[in-house]
Design a binder for these strands. Structure first.
Lengths: 93, 93
DNA sequence: TCGATAGTTTGATATTCTTCAAATTATCGA
DNA sequence: TCGATAATTTGAAGAATATCAAACTATCGA
């Protein structure tokens, strides 16, 4: 997962709030949407970006699309951030 | 420092590369600029965003503006990121 | 099979972002 | 004081982003 895409995904406050909600538990898109004053279409757009970044996963459950966090990509991102600021050990992001 | 501003600052690849350079040592703007195929004006714009986010500091040294990392904001940002993904403990970013 | 519910996709619009070239400010050295 | 060097600021242009409304797709329940 390119860290560019992950950082872009994290740069939007709505998307960070989505992640915060999903931290509690996996949730269908509609339940996430209740927390926002935004159309479902807009939320769907944000879900796509989070999915592309690998930050969330999505599984259909009957009528529902259930979203959940993917913590492994998060861990890689933390590592990348550490490299940006930690002592110089000649690495790339 | 609002985490919104910090995340936005980190979302651009040029700015992350600037941080990576400054990790080695404090550097005048011109020396940073040598690493890019971009005008100094554009770089100056990125420096401003990094300064606003508190990720770098800047000190005039004669003709030179010497930029350096500010690691304390980075540490706060890591903490915020941890909150996004770590177990739910009822916090905000 | 049909209507209702859940969610996505599309097309348009307004805003924000990145970049450049040119003008401007600040400091140094002679 | 003047010219050169270092960097910032300004104004403009093009690309990317967020959002909405409306159309569309998929599944459920009766």
């Amino acid at each position: 997962m390119s860290s560019q895409i992950v950082f872009k995904a994290l740069s939007d406050p709505t998307r960070r709030e989505i992640l915060r909600l999903l931290r509690k538990r996996p949730m269908p898109a509609g339940e996430v949407a209740e927390a926002f004053v935004m159309t479902k279409g807009s939320l769907s757009h944000h879900f796509n970006i989070l999915k592309q970044a690998g930050l969330v996963r999505c599984e259909r459950r009957g009528q529902f699309q259930v979203y959940s966090l993917n913590t492994s990509v998060f861990e890689q991102t933390m590592a990348t951030l550490m490299e940006l600021f930690g002592p110089d050990r000649r690495k790339r992001s």
